[in-house]
């Protein structure tokens, strides 16, 4: 079984980000990394290989030249090969454009299973697994808190607000994984050194048969109108009990519509 992991190179979440005039991220202003949520997907893929369920783990990303850092991290974690789709024309793509490129690259690579994180830590849209599955015409199972693969099927458990459901899909399929799937490993230095020798193939849009005009900022179906930093979280209210704490608490909740 061959597993392709879709991984995203994202700006450090704790760093301060800067943006270009067209509202795209100023890549030079901030360090990047493999999206933490995609690390869980890499981890599960590598575990499938270690358990003998998968023969090969290929990690796939669409991103700028520096995105190879994210691929190296995934290789250090245990992926076998990496594919890096990089093309000036892709810059500024929205989810629709990116999913087009990812689906085409995955399709060209060939796979039995596609794994990816539940969301990226920058845009946090969570739509990519579904979009890629739709473009590939494959079943999808999303927000998996646990994953098992047996024969030609994959089974996930999916934590919802009130229940945990079990979903089984026939392979090939696209599955997104949450941080509940267990810690992602911290690669040993030896693995980091070995990863430097693992193959990373670079592909252009032409390699994938995608016209430059179909992706990128111009072709995006969505547009960013403005960007503002999230407001600072306000300090909470501390009620000191002087005999009327319950009343104050009830008033606090009522004022916010939690009590009527």
């Amino acid at each position: 079984m061959k597993v392709v992991v879709l991984a995203k190179y994202v700006p450090e979440p704790t760093a301060t980000w800067a943006f270009e005039a067209d509202h795209t991220l100023a890549r030079e202003s901030v360090e990047g990394r493999l999206s933490e949520l995609d690390e869980y997907a890499v981890e599960q893929a590598v575990r499938l290989k270690e358990a003998g369920a998968a023969d090969e783990v290929v990690v796939l990303t669409v991103g700028p030249a520096k995105a190879v850092d994210a691929l190296r991290k995934a290789l250090a974690m245990g992926a076998d090969r990496a594919v890096h789709v990089s093309d000036e024309a892709i810059a500024g793509s929205d989810a629709l454009g990116t999913s087009r490129v990812l689906a085409a690259a995955a399709d060209k690579e060939g796979f039995d299973l596609v794994l990816t994180g539940m969301a990226s830590t920058d845009a946090e849209m969570s739509v990519m697994p579904s979009m890629v599955a739709a473009r590939l015409g494959l079943p999808q199972a999303t927000f998996a808190g646990a994953l098992s693969v047996e024969g030609g099927t994959a089974t996930i458990s999916r934590d919802l607000d009130t229940a945990t459901t079990e979903v089984t899909v026939t392979l090939p399929a696209v599955i997104s994984l949450t941080d509940q799937t267990d810690e992602a490993r911290y690669p040993a230095f030896k693995a980091i050194m070995m990863a430097k020798k693992k193959p990373v193939e670079t592909r252009s849009l032409a390699d994938l048969g995608i016209a430059a005009g179909d992706v990128g900022l111009e072709a995006a179906g969505t547009s960013v109108l403005s960007i503002a930093p999230a407001p600072q979280r306000q300090a909470g209210t501390i009620i000191t009990d002087e005999g009327d704490a319950a009343t104050q608490l009830a008033d606090f909740l009522a004022a916010r519509g939690f009590l009527r």
Partner: peptide
């Protein structure tokens, strides 16, 4: 253990 084996208490990985 850390550099060659990547083996250490999980919680320290974070």
């Amino acid at each position: 253990q850390v550099l060659m084996e990547g083996a250490f208490p999980d919680e320290a990985g974070a």
